Simulated scan of single mutants.
Amino acid sequence: MSSANTNTARYELLDPLRGVAILAVMLLHFSERGRESGDDLIHSYLWPITQHGYLGVQLFFVISGYCIAAALYGTLNKPQPFRYFMMRRFRRIFPPYWISIVLVVMLGFATIFILNTSPDVVFPLTPFDWLCNALLLQGPLHAVDANLVYWSLSIELQFYLVMAIALFWPKWTEAWLIMFSIVCLALNCFADWPLWGTVVVYWPEFLCGIVAYYWITGRMRWKWTPGYLVGIVIFQIVLQANQYEVLVQENGRLVQPIKLLFCLSCMATLLALRYYDQSIARWRSARCLAFFGIISYSLYLTHVPIGTRIFNLIDRLLGLDGLKWLACGLAAMVICTIFGWIFFRWFEKPWLNPPAPSPTTDTPKALPEGVAS
């Protein structure tokens, strides 16, 4: 058993969990190409498993809820806490993100000139779409994403803003979270407004991570806060469950109540494994997953544009049926991992926030708070 102090926010297993999440997302995107090949092995046996890789998104959001809650409470005693908090988030997210947009554009022009592809096919975006992508506003403004994974970063940015508002009234942080959670509950269950692309839809996922932070560190002013917040998530599951007659949608994805149950299970896993945190983190498999977790943001930003070109090239040369797709998929995983590591070293690591000094070590490592697909 670990002898770690379970009242601190430092949680070594978050990196391996990020690794699980990014690998699930990559398998989803890469296996989609195999499903298109019509191969029975892939369609009948592999795809039914990998098609749920989008749950890596939910896991990323839960982890982000935990880490941003820790960052928020680590900022309370800073001068100008709102500015300090948002500047760290900006520095952490935007520079690598903008560089990834440059990568998308460069690869797009290469496709146009080498393969003689129409620019309208490669870049089906308007100037407004590009502006929204540059500012991470494509979610709430319903603009087209330059990279299909960017939508979740827009959700992340909105989440940061919601959390940062609490810094204006530090003593009422929990009251703000409870009030916002109730508003999101009402909007998700009763409003007919178009909420797609807003943090309102995904707030319960983040909330599961916030609750895990409260229960692990005990930093709440009101002891009943975590139970109350969990109750809101459960209440939304019950209310939304009545809106569905099936568990799986036509596109093969689980309905929202099942996704929220998955997030609650992620929260429960964080709580259950906390005491064994450092012991499990020393396992070889955990260290391997931690490597993917550390570079998960860079992998997240680059695996689609890089992987897409790999699949397109192999498809033109050899085709993607059966074992050829499996070999191409493995090659894409390896090449994208290598490229993601290089991207991390050159374009992400220089912008990593240094750990904020804290006598209680209550701030986690300066690693990706959360990303999703």
Rank of each mutant, 00 (worst) to 15 (best):
S285I: 15
E348W: 05
W151Y: 12
V102S: 08
A110E: 12
I101M: 14
I216R: 03
L330G: 14
V25K: 13
M333H: 14
V304M: 13
E174R: 07
D192Y: 00
V57Y: 04
E250P: 04
I216L: 14
V57Q: 10
L271H: 06
W224S: 14
L17S: 07
L141T: 14
G108R: 13
L46Q: 00
R33C: 05
L318R: 11
C189K: 00
W172F: 10
D277Y: 12
P194L: 02
W193Q: 04
S64R: 03
I234A: 13
Y228D: 00
V201A: 08
C208F: 03
E205K: 00
E205V: 00
L273R: 05
I42Y: 02
A175E: 00
L55V: 11
L28R: 06
I294L: 15
L115K: 11
F90I: 15
F85T: 11
S31Y: 02
F180Q: 05
Y45K: 11
A146S: 06
F206Q: 02
V57L: 12
A21G: 06
N5D: 14
T363R: 12
F190Q: 08
E156R: 06
S181V: 10
P354Q: 08
T198E: 06
D192M: 00
T75N: 10
C328T: 15
R92D: 07
R92P: 06
I49R: 00
G139T: 09
A241D: 12
R89A: 14
I63M: 08
R35A: 09
F262C: 05
G218I: 08
C328V: 13
